Measured scan of single mutants.
Amino acid sequence: METPSQRRATRSGAQASSTPLSPTRITRLQEKEDLQELNDRLAVYIDRVRSLETENAGLRLRITESEEVVSREVSGIKAAYEAELGDARKTLDSVAKERARLQLELSKVREEFKELKARNTKKEGDLIAAQARLKDLEALLNSKEAALSTALSEKRTLEGELHDLRGQVAKLEAALGEAKKQLQDEMLRRVDAENRLQTMKEELDFQKNIYSEELRETKRRHETRLVEIDNGKQREFESRLADALQELRAQHEDQVEQYKKELEKTYSAKLDNARQSAERNSNLVGAAHEELQQSRIRIDSLSAQLSQLQKQLAAKEAKLRDLEDSLARERDTSRRLLAEKEREMAEMRARMQQQLDEYQELLDIKLALDMEIHAYRKLLEGEEERLRLSPSPTSQRSRGRASSHSSQTQGGGSVTKKRKLESTESRSSFSQHARTSGRVAVEEVDEEGKFVRLRNKSNEDQSMGNWQIKRQNGDDPLLTYRFPPKFTLKAGQVVTIWAAGAGATHSPPTDL
């Protein structure tokens, strides 16, 4: 069977082979063929449309019947899901209200924590001031004790010197008594010597008188005998007598002179000795008097100093007792304040721990409710997609609110971060928990396990030699990294520990 286009092609070929045509004729024939082709295509399209309309009418009838069946089946399910969705919305509203209440309680707890922290800071300042005052008082007490020990040692030294001076005074008084006794003995010996000298002088005078009498008696006897002796021998006898008398007189005078000289010499020697002894004793007595006077003056001065030191010692002891009493009071006050502060800190920690436990429990309940609501929403969306139902505006708002919801909680030295990733086909969620104590904190952990970043959050360098970082993902083997023995993380510095297959460059001390 030939198509209209094939017939047109045969006809035009025959005409062209029979007679030659002009260009205008050819153009018109071409346009006519195009119109015929378009008409044929339109006829085919109309036939196809008619057949499709016939099929569409049958399909519409089948769809109508199916919609009636589906509407009867879905009406009950939709009512049940609407009821469950209403319950879920009520639960979500109650959870939102509970969350708002918990946020209010958390803000209240934070305000109480700030207030307690301020009070604690003030108490710590008072405690530091009390400890500083206690240290000052202890230093003052130590200085006073040192001064007291010095004063006591000086007192003992002065008492020793006073005892020595008293012994010296006793010795000097004994020496003075001995000197006085020697002086009295010398004076007695001097008086005795003077008496003996006077006696010797009297004896000498008496001997002179006796010698004169004997001489006169001898002259008288000789004169008497001379009268009786011969005149011839008188001159010879007289001359001999005169010579004998002269010789006797000379001898007697020599003896008297020698005895006189010896007596005067002895007397002068004894007198000089007595005078020297008297002068020496008088000098000793003067020196003893002077030394005794000086000793008395020094004793008086030392007694005055001793009394002054005793007064100072009594004042120091009184002040020391006052300082000890004040120190005891300060210690009791400090202990009482410290006990009160520790009790308040313990109560505050217990209260904060209780509130944190309650908040953690409520947060766990909220997370469980969020997971249940998310599961209900997934089931509802799956059924709506299976039944090709359009979601209600309320469910769209709930989905938008659930997809944009995120929370971040800080308290008790722990930080909890939650992130949620969404897509049109599926939804997944993960959470990161970080707890830090000390100078070094974990700043970031790569989700794909490529690196771990640490930061020194203090103002001092931290030695991290032979420290270890351990990481384990589920049931995978435990991964451990040990820092070099001499590694030190500077204040405020960040160090990144890269995985072996991350392709990073080893560049200490920032990249390991």
Rank of each mutant, 00 (worst) to 15 (best):
D243S: 15
K265G: 13
T224M: 04
R240N: 06
E257C: 15
A242W: 05
Q251H: 08
M187K: 15
R190G: 13
A244R: 05
E217A: 13
D205F: 10
L197V: 07
K201H: 15
T218S: 11
K261S: 15
K265P: 01
V227I: 08
E213T: 08
L226G: 14
M200Q: 06
Q251N: 11
V191T: 06
E253F: 10
L263R: 06
F237L: 15
K180H: 12
F206A: 01
K261C: 15
K260A: 00
G232I: 01
L263I: 13
Q234H: 10
N273G: 00
Y211P: 05
Q251P: 05
R189S: 05
N231R: 14
A242R: 06
T224D: 13
E202K: 02
R221L: 11
K201E: 10
R220Q: 04
Q258M: 07
S268Y: 10
T218M: 00
S268D: 05
L263G: 00
L263A: 05
L248W: 05
E213P: 02
L263Q: 04
D254I: 14
K260P: 03
L183G: 08
R240K: 15
D192S: 00
A242D: 07
L215T: 10
D243H: 15
V191Y: 04
F237M: 15
M200K: 05
E186P: 00
D272V: 15
A193C: 12
F206P: 01
A244Y: 00
Q246P: 07
R221E: 06
T218P: 10
L188G: 01
R235P: 03
Q251Y: 01
K265T: 09
Q207I: 14
R220V: 12
L197W: 03
E253N: 13
T199Q: 00
R220L: 08
K260Y: 01
A244L: 03
A242L: 01
Q234I: 13
N273V: 12
Y211K: 11
K265I: 06
N209Y: 07
R196G: 05
L197R: 14
D243M: 02
R189E: 07
E217Q: 06
K265H: 06
F237I: 15
L248F: 04
Q184I: 09
Q198K: 10
E214K: 09
L226W: 02
K265L: 04
D192G: 02
K265M: 12
E264V: 15
K219M: 14
L271R: 03
N195K: 03
N209G: 02
A193D: 06
Q184T: 13
L183M: 15
H252R: 10
T218H: 04
D243P: 00
G232T: 06
E238G: 06
E247M: 02
L248I: 04
Q251W: 02
D230K: 14
K201P: 00
S239D: 05
E238F: 10
F206R: 03
E228M: 07
A193M: 03
H222W: 05
R221F: 15
D230T: 07
E186V: 07
K180L: 00
E217I: 08
V256Q: 01
A250I: 13
H252E: 07
K261P: 02
A250D: 14
R240Q: 09
E264Q: 13
R189F: 04
Q246K: 15
E238H: 10
L204Q: 04
T224H: 05
M187S: 11
E236Y: 01
K261H: 12
Q234Y: 10
A242F: 11
S212F: 05
R190I: 03
D272N: 10
E238P: 00
D205N: 05
Q246F: 09
E247D: 07
L215H: 03
L215Q: 11
K270A: 04
Q251A: 08
E217N: 11
A250S: 03
A242Y: 05
E178W: 10
Q234K: 12
L188C: 03
R190L: 07
E194I: 15
E202D: 01
L248R: 12
R235E: 04
E228S: 03
N195G: 01
N231C: 06
K208I: 04
A242C: 01
E238A: 02
E217G: 06
S239H: 13
D192W: 07
H252C: 10
D230P: 06
Q198G: 05
E253I: 05
D230Q: 10
E257I: 12
Q198E: 08
R225E: 08
E194T: 00
K270R: 15
D205K: 06
V227K: 06
D230A: 05
M187N: 03
A269L: 08
E262R: 03
D272H: 11
D185W: 12
M200I: 14
I210Q: 04
V191P: 02
D230L: 05
Q207D: 03
N231D: 13
R189M: 00
E264T: 15
L241I: 09
R216N: 07
R220F: 13
A242M: 13
F237Y: 11
I229C: 04
A179Q: 10
L188D: 02
V191C: 08
E202S: 07
R220Y: 14
A250P: 04
D272P: 03
A179L: 13
H222Y: 03
V191M: 06
R235D: 05
E186S: 13
M187Q: 01
L188W: 05
S212L: 12
D205E: 02
N209F: 04
E223K: 06
M200A: 02
V227H: 00
V227A: 11
K208P: 00
M200F: 12
E262F: 00
D254G: 15
R220A: 14
R235W: 12
Q258D: 10
R225S: 13
E202Q: 07
L188S: 03
D192M: 11
E223D: 10
I210W: 01
L263F: 02
R225F: 01
E214N: 15
R235I: 15
Q184L: 11
K180W: 00
E194W: 11
E264C: 15
L204R: 11
L241M: 01
K260W: 03
K219S: 06
Q182T: 14
D185S: 13
A179P: 00
Y267G: 01
D230M: 06
Y267A: 00
E213M: 00
Q234P: 00
R225M: 10
E228L: 04
E213G: 12
H222K: 00
Y267S: 00
A250T: 12
T266P: 01
R240S: 08
F206Y: 01
K201M: 13
Y267I: 01
Q182G: 09
K181E: 12
S212Q: 07
Q207W: 03
R216Y: 15
A269W: 02
K208G: 00
E178H: 03
Q184S: 14
I229S: 10
E228Y: 09
Q255K: 07
L197I: 04
N231Y: 06
E264W: 15
I229P: 01
N273T: 05
Q258C: 11
E236G: 05
Y211H: 01
N231G: 08
L245N: 02
A250W: 11
E214R: 01
A179M: 14
T218V: 09
L226C: 11
A179S: 09
E214Q: 05
K219W: 03
L183F: 01
E217K: 14
I210Y: 07
K265E: 14
D254H: 09
N231H: 12
K261A: 10
R225Q: 09
L215G: 08
E247P: 05
L183I: 12
E186D: 08
T224G: 14
Q255E: 12
K233E: 09
F206L: 02
E214S: 04
K270I: 08
Y211M: 13
Q184H: 14
D230V: 05
